[in-house]
Design a protein around this nucleic acid. Structure first.
Lengths: 334, 334
DNA sequence: TTATACCCTGAAAACGGTTTCAAAAAAACG
DNA sequence: CGTTTTTTTGAAACCGTTTTCAGGGTATAA
C-alpha cells in the first residue's frame, strides 16, 4: 500500500547500468545481456520500483488507461456490464476511467472528448445513442469496443446478443404454451434493443399465423412504472389477451403489479415473460420466466477483447447468446 | 470530440509571450499583465488548447483523477452509490478511476496500491473491509472519503446513514402496527451495517418490553436466496411470528417468495419490512414497505465533499438520513 | 536624480520516463 | 589475426508542463 518515489535512475545506479538499459528491460524493447537483466530485475525488486505513469505517458504516449462510457440509467443490466468490465480489467495493466453519457448523444460526445483528452489507450462504449457514423470515425483513431449495441460497420467490435432472436424465442415460448393473444410492452422506441425485440415479437406471431394486433402493443420506457401503465391501458381498452411479453424485467414487474391490483392471477389468468433476467427476477412472485442476457460476461468479454486489441492487435469477441430461463410466470393454455 | 496536439508552446508563440506566462494564466498562479492575459486566452481559444495531462502530472504532481474503491457485490445499493459518484464528479475537473475490492481486505489493499501508483489526487472508498487503522493511515497521505461505513476516527470523512436508528424505526413501525413476534433475517455478520441493523432491531424490542427471541433471528447474507432459506427455517422450527424485518430488500424478496410457496399471504398473515428501498421494491407484490437509503445522494455528496477538500481544503459532508417508506407489505394487527 | 521596492516576465531547470544515435564490445568471417 | 557484422550499451534529446530564479521595468521614496 505504501508508495515511495523510486525512479528509474535509482534502479540504474544500484544495478550499475544506465537508465536506458533499465527502460529496456522494463519494456522488453531491446535485448539486454542476461547478467544485467538480472541485476536490473533484482534492483527493481529490492527497491520496489513502480514506474511513474505520467512520465511514461508523456514519453511513450501510453496512459495504461481505458475509458468507459456508460449511461447513467442505473439499470441492473448496464450496471452488471460495468461490473463485468471492471473485473475483466482487474489483472490487466489497464485501469478503467468511467464517464457518463446519460443516453444523450451530445453529452456522450462531450465526455468522449474528455476521455480522449486524457489519452486513454482504448474505449469501451456501453449502449448510448451516438451515431454509428461517429462511432466509426472514433474507431479509426482509437481501439474501441461497443457493448450492447449492434453496428453493421463495426460488427467485429461489438459485444451483443441477438435481440431479435431472443424476443422471437420468448414469444415463441408463449405461443407454444397455447397463447394466441399476446400483448407486448415495448421499450423506448429509439432504442435499438427495443425495436429489435419488438420485431422479434412480430415475426414470431407471423410465423405462427397469428394476427398481429396493434392494440396489443403499448409503448413503454423500460421502467416499472411504464409496465404498470401499460397493463392498465391494456385492461382499460378491453381487448382480451392471455399473455404479456415485456421488453425488460422491470416492466414485467410493473405489469405483474398492475395485474395484482386488479386481482388477476399470474400465471393462471395471464402469463408474463420478461427480458434480461436481472437477479431479482428469480425471487419475485411468481418467479419470472424471462430471457437471460449474460450482462456480466458481456462486460468481461469487452474488457478482454480490448486488452487483446491493445496487446496483440487481434480481437476475438466470443459470440454470446441469450437464453430462455423458464420459471413460473407462464402457464400452459389448452 | 477531435483532439489535436496543441501545446503550451504553440500558445506562447501565437500570443507572443513565453511558455511560463501561458502556464501562469492557465493556473492563475502569478499575476500577468491584463493585455498579455487576454492575448493568451484568445490564443488558447483559437487553437482549442487542451493541456496534456501527463505533462501536468509529471511537473505538478496533480493527476486530476480520483480513485474509487468499490466492492463487486453488484448490489443495487452499491451500484447506485457508484452512479452517484460518477454524476457528482461530472462537471468537476476530476475523472474517476474505478477498482474493485471484492470485499476482501487483501484485495482492497492491493487495488488501493495501484490507485496510489497512479497518483490519484483523492480516494473514495465505498464500503469494504479494510481495517479502520489502515484507512486512518491512508487518510494521512491522501484526501479520502469513506461511503457507507462509519468510522470513529474518521467521522468527518464518512458519508453514511445511521443504520442503528433506521433499523430501530423499522422495527418500531412493526411494533406500532401491533406485531409482537418479529423475526429478523440478518445480513453478513462481519458487515458493520448488518450488525448495526441487528442492534437497532434488538433495542426497539427491548424498549417496547418485548422479549428478544434468539430463535426468531436467522443469519443471512444479504442475498435473495438467504431470504428464502431464512423463512423456510423459521417455518420449519415452528415458532410463531407475524412479521419479518430483513437486513435488505433482496432478502425481503426471498422471504416473500418462501411465504408465497407455502401459501402464506403477505401482508394478511405475515408482514414484511425491508431495507434499502431499491427501485424494484415499489413494484413487487405487494409493494414493499422498507427503509430508504439515499444511495445516489450518498455518492453525489461523497464526490462533492472530496472535490471540496481538494480545492478549498474544507469538507462539508451533509448529514443524510434514511427514512421509512410505507407501502403495502405491513398490515396492522389488532 | 538616484536609490529602493515591487511587479512582470522569460530562461532554464526540474519531473521520470522512452527513444534515437553512435560508440563499444562481442561475434563471425576470411 | 585483421576485418566486417552484429549485438549491447550509454549519452543525450525529447515529451509538455510547472516552478524557481534572476533580470528588466516601473513606480515610489529619498
Amino acid at each position: 500500500m505504501e508508495f515511495k518515489n523510486v525512479t528509474i535512475q535509482d534502479i540504474a545506479e544500484t544495478a550499475n547500468v544506465s537508465k536506458s538499459t533499465v527502460s529496456r528491460v522494463i519494456n522488453n524493447s531491446t535485448p539486454v545481456a542476461e547478467k544485467k537483466r538480472k541485476a536490473v530485475l533484482a534492483a527493481m525488486e529490492k527497491l520496489n520500483f513502480q514506474p511513474n505513469i505520467f512520465a511514461r505517458g508523456l514519453a511513450g504516449g501510453q496512459s495504461m488507461t481505458i475509458g468507459i462510457v456508460t449511461q447513467n440509467i442505473g439499470s441492473p443490466f448496464y450496471d452488471s456490464v460495468s461490473q463485468g468490465i471492471i473485473s475483466g480489467l482487474r489483472d490487466s495493466v489497464y485501469a478503467p476511467v468511467f464517464v457518463d453519457g446519460q443516453w444523450k448523444s451530445k453529452v456522450e460526445e462531450e465526455v468522449i472528448g474528455t476521455l480522449l483528452g486524457r489519452h486513454v489507450d482504448g474505449l469501451i462504449v456501453v449502449g448510448g445513442s451516438l451515431s454509428e457514423e461517429k462511432l466509426v470515425h472514433l474507431s479509426q483513431q482509437k481501439p474501441i469496443i461497443v457493448v450492447a449495441r449492434q453496428l453493421d460497420a463495426l460488427s467485429d467490435r461489438c459485444v451483443f446478443i441477438d435481440n431479435f432472436d431472443a424476443a422471437y424465442q420468448a414469444t415463441r415460448f408463449l405461443i407454444d404454451a397455447g397463447h394466441e393473444n399476446i400483448a407486448h410492452l415495448t421499450g423506448i422506441r429509439r432504442h435499438q434493443d427495443a425495436t429489435r425485440r419488438f420485431k422479434g415479437y412480430c415475426q414470431a406471431l407471423t410465423d405462427a399465423n397469428l394476427d398481429f394486433k396493434t392494440e396489443l402493443v403499448i409503448e413503454g420506457d423500460f421502467s416499472g412504472q411504464s409496465g404498470v401503465m401499460g397493463v392498465e391501458s391494456l385492461l382499460m381498452r378491453g381487448h382480451s389477451f392471455t399473455a404479456i411479453f415485456t421488453a425488460n424485467d422491470e416492466m414485467a414487474y410493473g405489469a405483474r403489479l398492475a395485474l395484482y391490483r386488479k386481482g388477476i392471477r399470474v400465471p393462471e389468468d395471464i402469463s408474463i415473460i420478461g427480458f434480461d433476467d436481472q437477479p431479482n427476477s428469480a425471487f419475485i412472485t411468481p418467479p419470472l420466466t424471462t430471457v437471460r442476457q449474460p450482462a456480466l460476461e458481456m462486460g468481461v468479454s469487452a474488457a478482454q477483447a480490448l486488452v487483446g486489441m491493445l496487446s496483440e492487435g487481434d480481437v476475438e469477441i466470443p459470440r454470446l447468446k441469450a437464453d430462455l430461463v423458464i420459471r413460473e410466470s407462464v402457464s400452459r393454455r389448452r
